[in-house]
Structure formats: structure tokens, C-alpha cells
Design a binder for these strands. Sequence first.
DNA 1: GATGAATGAGAATTCATTCAT
DNA 2: TATGAATGAATTCTCATTCAT
Lengths: 200, 200, 200, 200
Amino acid sequence: MPKISEERLAARREQVLQAAWSCFARNGFHATTMADVIAESGMSAGGVYRYFRSKEEIVTAIADRAYGTLTTALQDLLADPDVTDVADVVGRLLRTVEEFADGESFDRTRIVLLAWAESLRSAEIGAKARSIQLALRELLVQVVARAQAAGQMRADADPAAVAPVIASVLIGYVVQRLVVGGMDPAFYTAGVQGLVGAHR
Amino acid sequence: MPKISEERLAARREQVLQAAWSCFARNGFHATTMADVIAESGMSAGGVYRYFRSKEEIVTAIADRAYGTLTTALQDLLADPDVTDVADVVGRLLRTVEEFADGESFDRTRIVLLAWAESLRSAEIGAKARSIQLALRELLVQVVARAQAAGQMRADADPAAVAPVIASVLIGYVVQRLVVGGMDPAFYTAGVQGLVGAHR
Amino acid sequence: MPKISEERLAARREQVLQAAWSCFARNGFHATTMADVIAESGMSAGGVYRYFRSKEEIVTAIADRAYGTLTTALQDLLADPDVTDVADVVGRLLRTVEEFADGESFDRTRIVLLAWAESLRSAEIGAKARSIQLALRELLVQVVARAQAAGQMRADADPAAVAPVIASVLIGYVVQRLVVGGMDPAFYTAGVQGLVGAHR
Amino acid sequence: MPKISEERLAARREQVLQAAWSCFARNGFHATTMADVIAESGMSAGGVYRYFRSKEEIVTAIADRAYGTLTTALQDLLADPDVTDVADVVGRLLRTVEEFADGESFDRTRIVLLAWAESLRSAEIGAKARSIQLALRELLVQVVARAQAAGQMRADADPAAVAPVIASVLIGYVVQRLVVGGMDPAFYTAGVQGLVGAHR
DNA sequence: GATGAATGAGAATTCATTCAT
DNA sequence: TATGAATGAATTCTCATTCAT
């Protein structure tokens, strides 16, 4: 019985989160009302509140998930030890971002940007965002080290300094993609290639 | 008499915007109530609404200003024709960002991140954000061309492709600065230097 | 279950309308605040707004009802084919008006006058008022035709022209009753009799 | 100096009333704001409040004027001792009403209807409306008596009973004209003729 | 006398959350 | 457990009126 209950719990939470995810991507966290989420979820108000204590909790869960899903995808990618070229890494990361954006009927990267902004207000969301970013940096440090080992990047560069810059290349892509629009992964990757240059 | 009136108008609008700016940086656009702005401004409700038609108008004005102030600073910097080294350019831009963040009692870059998120909801804010970003890209295209002319960057790189990447280096710095914290401009600049590498 | 829900809906709307009806009769549409209606209804603000989208919707519903109730009563009366004497018709109509005025704790004819005035501002209320008046005229045309057939009215009179005049006799009664006061249906009917005169 | 001051006073009051009159005819008493009246008058807020203590006072003055102007016109008409035919009287009265409606850029009869509705709320407006109506009745009593003397109306009719009915014929015309529209004075007068019948 | 900026109580409406059924 | 009607504090905005200049 506790097992079934637990599955049920997870399924119901999922149902709410799917609805919230979709609403938030459309209207942002604040312009989305609980009534929107409730209607989209197909559940009752009481039902939703059985699984989440408050709207804040849902927002936090969604923000977590947004970071989490993207980060997991990036981690899978970066875990491949053959990846040594920085521009190639960025190119692959961007494709992952694009898949992430197109994977649902709504653009999930919108949630990521909303969550960054929400970090400024919510300590909990901020903490999560911070730890995810730090984990991403860790991975990028390894990529840089590998690139250096493969002779594709200056040996005198500090991987710990380079990693946040590569993170920025990704973050900036997400922001410009949403704010400016018209970002082409291949063209952007070419820009990265051009900037990074051929070492030696 | 129209002169006085115009000055008064500007002064009052400024009074409201200062208050709003401060409230928004603290709590974000949505968690800030008009009552907060009114109290902070030292004016009455009616007074505030004499100078701004709605909260939305205040939000838009603040977002404009956030973009505008930062962009003006960046433009001044990039207008210097002696600047040819990309890492140097980024270093200078970061210092400008830091000054921008410290220039008031609150961190103005917070408003920039809020405004990016708000772009997803407000067509007006989105349009402004877009045009500012495009203007920034234009300037960076020129910087890249200059760097190429000075032999400091690969001649075969397309400046139009490189510019958004450099923009990302800035955007990502702002985001990581706010979300992760602990960003050191010098260390970050070193990372840029390491990534860009020595051409040839 | 839909049955209960529908009844509940109707009952709640009724509760709000009763309250509004009473407030409006006392203070008019504009001087009545939603807080007044809410307090009178015994419901909460949110409750009232669950059943009516806006104050305007309540005003419109009340205006409709005012017209509707009176018109239904008049139609019932005029549907009696034995009625052929015009003064008699007017006398009966006035008694209906008086009953309508006394049927509740407040005078429902006040709402009718308010609604006429409101017709000048609200297209929706105006349309309803117009259609009700036209329906009343239709009925009066038939009454006039019957009176002519019974030889109690000049055969050369155009019923379509006479009907609005009879409508005026009613409308004017309502207005004078509210504005001047002291209207006695029997005395007024005698006046109608005197004016109409004996044909031949 | 007191004379000039007095003239100035009257002129300024007139300026405000003209503006208010026009605004009220357009939007009704309640939907018209003092800002509207102030703007339309070309005066300043302080200026308007120098000549009128409150909005209520302006509304009352306008209501008075609406009644007064129409009543004066009617009185002039009814003072003519040659007028003895009731349908003729009504026909002339309607022409006066139409002139009254067309005499300005806005329809002054709208104000009359608004004022009747307002009578329900304002004791002052109500008192004025009542006294005007009573004065009108007085005149109509005389008309009826004259008609009887001329053998054009049944001698056994009580003029005091007939007068309010004739008043209604006018009131109803005004209401139907505004609420239903499409009223033709000649056609309506024909209806009166038909109803009144040929006394012999 | 005149101005018009300022006031602030009050208006309509919303919405996260609860709880009786 | 589930429902969804009910709550009521909070929100944005208005507007008649005043008063310092």
C-alpha cells in the first residue's frame, strides 16, 4: 500500500508539474495563476494542493527540473572522453540546447531564463541554480584539461578560469536565442571557432 | 513656465523611477507592489499615477533604463579605436559592468536579468532588448574587424559570427555573477585570454 | 450532480441579484459599491465574482430583470382577449405596476427608471430596453385593434400610431409616480377616461 | 466693483455649466469626472471649485437647468390662450421638445432623463423635479379647462385628473425617443389624435 | 484671484489557499 | 481521498477635492 501510494504520489506530482511547466513557459511564473495550472492539470484545486504545499513549491520544483534536465543532457555529452575540441564541444552543447527547446510543445529554455531571474528572489531556487552551474563548470574544467592534453588548447591556460567562459558561451546563446532570436547553432559555432582560433 | 514644468515632470518621473529601480532590484518586478514603489518614492498614490499611467509603464521604463545605461557605457568603451585586443575589450567591458553594478545602492545588473526574463512576456520590453542587443553586436563586429586588421585574430573568421559569441561572454558573466556569485573580472578575463588563445 | 450544481449556481446568482436589486433601488447603480452588494448578499467578494464577472454584468442583469418582470406581467394582462376598453386596459396595467412596486421590500419601478437612464450609456441595456418596449407596443397594437373592432375606438385611428401613446401613458405614470409622487391609479385612470372620451 | 464681480461670477458659472452640460449629455452624471468637466470648461480645477462647491452642486444646477429650460419653453407655449385642441397642444409641445433636443450640439433631453433618475437619490434634485412637474400640471389643467370651454373635450372630465395624463404623453415621448428611438412627432401626434377621439 | 500638482480614501477586481461535504 | 466553492486580504488604479505658490 505504501508502494502504490508512493507511485500515485509521484504520478500526481508529475501531472501537476507537466501542467505548470507548460503554463510557466507560456506566461512566466507570476502571470500564471494557480487556476491556470489547476485547469491545465485536469485536477481539482484541492488535489493540486494535496501534492504541493504552495505555488512557490511548484515554481521551485519546475526551476529545479529545468536546470536538472538540461544539465543531465550536458553531463551525458561531456562524459564522452573523446570530446577534446572546444568548438566541437560547444557545437554539441548547442544541439543539446536546441533539442531541449524543441523537446516539448513549449520551449523549455524559457523556463531556464525565468529561473535565473527568480534566483534573485528565491534563496532556494538560487541555491539550486548555483550548484548546477558549479557542477557544469566542473565538467567543463575536465573538458578543457582534455583539450589541453590533446594539444588543442594552450597549455598555460587555467582550466578553472576557462570553464566559466565556456559556460558563458552557452548561457549567452540561450539568452540571445530567447531575447534576440534568429540564432543559428552552426553559425554560432563558427563564431566560436573563429574566436577560439587554432592554437599554434 | 513650460521649462519649469518640464523640469518638474522629469524630476518627478525620476523620483518614481529611482524608487521603482530600488524596489525592483530588491524584489523583482512582480513581487514589488505599487504600494512599495509609492512608499519608497515618498509620493502619494495619485502622485505616482500622475507621472506613470500604470505599473507596466514603470516596469518598461526601468527595463529601458537598465539596458540603456549599460549599453551607453559599453558604447563609449567600444568607440575607442585603439582597442584591438579581444581579451582586453572583454576585460574593459567587465570593469564597466562592475561599475554599473556598484554605481548605486543596489545592483543594477539585477534589473538587466529581470528585464531579459520579462522580454518573454512583454513585447515592448522584448523589442527594446532586441534592438539593444543588435546595437551591441554591431559594435562588436567592428571590434572584431579591428582585431583582425591588427593581426590579433584569425583573418578567416566571420566578424558577424564572432560578435554574438563575444556578446555571450558578457551576458554569461552577468548571469553567473548574479546566479553563482564570486566572479572575479580579472580571473574571468584570464579565462577569456586562455580560450581565445594566441593566434598563430 | 450537474443538476445540483446548476441549482446552486442559480441560487447563488439569485442571492447576489437580490442584494444588488435592493442596493440599486436604494442608491442607484453608481452610488452602490460592490462592497455594498457584497455585504448585502452575505457572501464574500470572491464569491460574488464567481457568479458575476463584473459590476457591469450585475447592473445589466438587474436592468434585464426589471424590464422582464414588468413586461411579463403586462403581457399576461394583455393576453386576455376580453379586454377591449382602453381606459380599462390602462387601469389594469397601472394596478400591475403598483403590485410590481409593492412586491418586494423595495420599489422595483425605481430600477426601471434607473435602467432607462442607463440605456443612454450601456449599449447592452439599451438594446434590451428597446426590444422590450417594442414588444409592449406590439401588444398594445393588438389591444387597439380589438378596441376598434369592439367599436370603442375610432376606426380611422392607426393602431401603430396609438400604441406608443398608450405606452407613454404607462411610462409617464411610472415617472410621475417616482418623481412627483402621490399618484392614485384610480384618479389617473379617470383622467385617461376623460382624455380618451366617448367615441361618437 | 461688486457688479463686475457678480457678472464675472455669473459668466464663470456659465462657463462651467456649459462644459458640464455637454459632458453629462455624453456620458451621464456618474461616468463624467470632474477632470472631464474641468478640461471641457478650459478652466483650472481650482477655478471650477471657486464657483461650485462640489460636483454634486454642478449636477444639481444642470438638472435644474434642464427642467427649467424645457419648462419655460412649454410655459410660453401653453400661455397662448388660443390653444384649445389637446392633440394640437401635444403636437406643439413635441415640436418644442424636438427643438430643445436639437438646440445644442448635444441632446438636452438626455439630461432630463438622467435628472429624473437622479431624483431618486438626491432630495434636492427630486424637489426641483417635483415642483417643475407640478407647475406643468397646473398649466395643463388650464389647457384642459379651455378645451372643455371650447367644447373640444368632455365637460365631465376632471381637468386635474386629465393633466397628469397629458404630462405622461409628453414624458413617455421623451423616454421612448431616447430609449427606443425613431419617434416621429407627426406620427405620434396622429396617435394622440386617434386616442383622444372626436368628442361630440 | 488663479493654478494645477498633490492627496489619499476608496473603488473594482484577483487569486493563493482552505475546508465542508 | 477528492472536490471545487468559498474566502478575504491584497492589488492596481481613480478621482473629488484641496492648498501652496
